[in-house]
Computed example of a mutant assay.
Amino acid sequence: MAKETWHEGEIRGLGARTDLRTACDILGMGHTAGYRMAKNGTFPVPLIKVGRSYVVPVAHLLDLLGLSRGSEMAAA
């Protein structure tokens, strides 16, 4: 089951890259739609195709969500 809400620290905690399913969860889109968009080249962030899989750079997700790549989130 997919997470309902991803927080900034959780996204940053993924490291440099993640898989397409996780990226879809973060963006609140269905996996089928996400894979279709990836195949058609219309996924909202650039993807890296590795064999039959897609790799999503977390930095591009952060940019799309309006979260600065370089700065860490403020302490809660």
Rank of each mutant, 00 (worst) to 15 (best):
A2M: 14
K3N: 13
K3D: 12
E4F: 05
E4K: 11
E4V: 02
W6Q: 05
W6M: 05
W6K: 07
W6E: 04
H7Y: 14
H7C: 10
H7V: 12
E8D: 10
E8S: 02
G9I: 09
G9L: 10
E10P: 11
E10A: 14
R12Y: 03
L14S: 01
L14E: 01
G15L: 03
G15T: 05
A16P: 11
R17S: 13
R17A: 13
R17I: 07
R17Y: 15
R17H: 15
T18Q: 04
T18M: 04
D19Y: 06
L20V: 12
L20F: 09
R21S: 15
R21Q: 15
R21A: 14
A23Q: 06
C24H: 01
C24T: 07
D25R: 03
D25K: 00
D25I: 00
I26P: 01
I26K: 00
I26L: 12
L27M: 14
L27P: 03
G28R: 06
G28I: 05
M29Y: 02
M29C: 09
G30P: 02
H31D: 15
A33E: 15
A33T: 15
A33F: 08
G34A: 09
G34W: 00
Y35M: 04
Y35P: 04
Y35W: 13
R36C: 06
A38C: 08
K39T: 10
N40Y: 12
N40G: 11
N40E: 15
N40D: 15
N40H: 14
G41Q: 09
T42P: 04
F43W: 01
V45C: 04
V45T: 06
P46L: 03
P46S: 06
P46I: 02
L47F: 02
L47T: 04
L47A: 01
L47E: 03
L47Q: 00
K49V: 06
K49Q: 13
V50E: 04
V50Y: 04
G51W: 07
S53Y: 09
S53A: 12
S53D: 15
V56G: 00
P57I: 07
P57V: 07
P57K: 11
V58R: 00
V58D: 00
V58I: 07
A59D: 13
A59E: 08
A59F: 07
L61T: 03
L62H: 05
L62E: 03
D63F: 02
D63C: 07
L65N: 14
L65H: 13
L65M: 14
L65F: 08
L67I: 15
S68W: 10
S68H: 11
R69M: 05
R69W: 04
R69P: 03
R69S: 06
S71L: 05
E72R: 09
E72H: 09
E72L: 10
E72D: 12
A74K: 13
A75Q: 10
A76D: 12
A76M: 06
